[in-house]
Amino acid sequence: MSEVIFHVRRYQPGKDARPYYQEFRVPLTPGLTVLDGLWHIKETQDPSLAWRFSCRMGICGSCGMLINGRARLACNTQITELGTSRVCIAPLPNFDIIRDLVPDLQPMFRTHKEMKPFIIRGDGLTESSEGEFIQTSEELEHYLQFSYCIKCGCCMAACPTVASDREYAGPMPLAQAHRYNRDSRDMGFAERKQVLGGGRGPWRCHFAGECSRVCPKGVDPARAIQLMKRELFLDVLHLRGKSCAAPCAGKPTDAKRREGIPEAPKPTVG
């Protein structure tokens, strides 16, 4: 195969009455990714084609799109791994379209923010002011895999419940809520429960498991949601084990700097 045919869904609200597919031919070169192909189209055939990208290495989560029927990162998808010379590209489903391949991710991030995705301490301590919180490697394992999420929205696009139920929070925000609930440094379960215990919570998940299947970072949001269901269930029955938040180690007072190690630069913020 010497060239690849890209079927790209185009749509410009206000100009186009409805989305349509446009065909482009891209020469196949070794290591060509879908993102490279889109760049080739933009540079040589149609500069008006719009999509979102940033890092080009599967870290930023910007270039999530529907590639041959599956939500993936364009930068992480080699053409050869698709096993076909025809590549059908559309914006992520379950989101409004801003233009062409650019989905509107704002609703997802608003829901994410509602879940309070940060360490909440009731004791007034913060890591930066008092030192480091003590956390064992076993405690880290409870949430580590969920912290690999890059918020690309692929799980939201693959979720059949999100597709039909506009109230459901979706796999990404729920998995991130669970990530912080399981963090031994966190004391925010009661606060997050105000949102999780309502109608947008994990009960609406049907455990289709598509979110975990498509995640480009290997995160398992479906597992997070099931674990969260169990926690909320036990919480109602007052059977959820209560553990104290990780204590602060404090800054060492008697440590001496070894020779040859320079002082850290002064903080520039805060």
Partner: peptide
């Protein structure tokens, strides 16, 4: 909160 309780009763 209400849904959390109702869902728990549903499971029980």
């Amino acid at each position: 909160m209400r849904d959390q309780k109702l869902w728990t009763v549903h499971i029980l």
